[in-house]
Computed example of a mutant assay.
Amino acid sequence: MTKITFNCGLDAALVILGGKWKPLILFHLAHGVHRYGELRRAVGRVSDKVLIQQLKELQLDEVVERIDFQEIPPKVEYSLTPFGRSLARALAPLCVWGTENMQEVERITVRRQTTRDAGLA
Results as ranks from 00 to 15, higher is better:
Met1Lys: 11
Lys3His: 11
Ile4Val: 08
Phe6Ala: 06
Cys8Gly: 14
Gly9Asp: 15
Asp11Cys: 05
Ala13Glu: 13
Ile16Phe: 15
Ile16Asp: 15
Gly18Leu: 11
Lys20Val: 12
Trp21Gly: 05
Trp21Met: 12
Trp21Gln: 07
Leu26Lys: 07
Leu29Ser: 07
Leu29Val: 05
Gly32Tyr: 09
Val33Thr: 03
Val33Asn: 01
Val33Arg: 00
Val33His: 02
His34Phe: 02
Arg35Thr: 02
Arg35Phe: 07
Gly37Gln: 09
Glu38Trp: 01
Leu39His: 01
Leu39Ile: 00
Leu39Phe: 01
Arg40Asn: 01
Arg40Ala: 01
Arg41Ile: 00
Ala42Phe: 01
Val43Ile: 08
Arg45Cys: 12
Arg45Ser: 09
Ser47Tyr: 13
Lys49Asn: 09
Ile52Glu: 09
Leu55Arg: 03
Lys56Phe: 11
Glu57Ser: 05
Leu60Gln: 14
Asp61Pro: 15
Asp61His: 13
Glu62Met: 13
Val63Gly: 12
Glu65Asp: 14
Ile67Glu: 12
Asp68Thr: 02
Phe69Asp: 14
Phe69Glu: 14
Glu71Cys: 12
Pro73His: 01
Val76Met: 12
Ser79Cys: 06
Ser79Arg: 03
Leu80Lys: 11
Thr81Arg: 09
Pro82Leu: 00
Arg85Pro: 15
Arg85Met: 12
Leu87Tyr: 05
Leu87His: 06
Leu87Phe: 07
Ala88Ser: 13
Ala88Asn: 04
Arg89Phe: 14
Pro93Leu: 00
Leu94Ala: 10
Cys95Thr: 00
Val96Ile: 04
Trp97Tyr: 09
Asn101Gly: 03
Asn101Gln: 06
Asn101Ser: 06
Val105Ala: 08
Val105Thr: 06
Glu106Gly: 00
Glu106Gln: 03
Arg107Lys: 01
Ile108Met: 11
Arg112Gly: 02
Gln113Thr: 02
Gln113Phe: 02
Thr114Ala: 01
Thr114His: 00
Thr115Asn: 08
Ala118Tyr: 01
Gly119Asn: 03
Gly119Ile: 00
Ala121Pro: 10
Ala121Asn: 14
